[in-house]
Amino acid sequence: MASVTMTVNGKSVSGDVEGRTLMSDFLRNDLRLTGTHIGCDTSQCGACVIHVNGEAVKACTMFAVEADGADVATIEGQANADGSLNVIQQAFQDHHGLQCGFCTPGMVMSAAALLKENPTPTEREVREYLEGNICRCTGYHNIVKAIMAASGQDVSAIAAE
């Protein structure tokens, strides 16, 4: 067992983990932060996307030990300080960017990483950035629309309600 300490959503946390403990398992089982979803556990689906030191990564494909000392952000830390939805989350609600919601935490975290890097992406750039996030309900149109809207762009011309 190894001892790890990191900052998760602004709070310092510690735990004892095995070498093989995945970051996704540490978040879910040790910290009880179950918003980070495990869809495939094979790095394909992106439901487990979190930010480590500001970069989007798949929590199922890194070890908790590798995040020792890191600044970690998960979906649980995304809402505004007063508990209201942040701009991206609100846009997902407004534009029906989810149905079952399973992929949504990863979608929101990927969207946040994209908009930090590229504040006004084109539709194509949004679609390319979501290559590693799979949604089986929505056909992606409203997810893309929500992210475009969250970036402050006019989405009235984008198809699919």
Binding site: A56, V57, T61, S110, Y129, E131, G132
Partner: peptide
């Protein structure tokens, strides 16, 4: 290569 999250690792 891969997708953005993969490229970050």
């Amino acid at each position: 290569i891969g997708d953005p999250a993969v490229r970050n690792r």
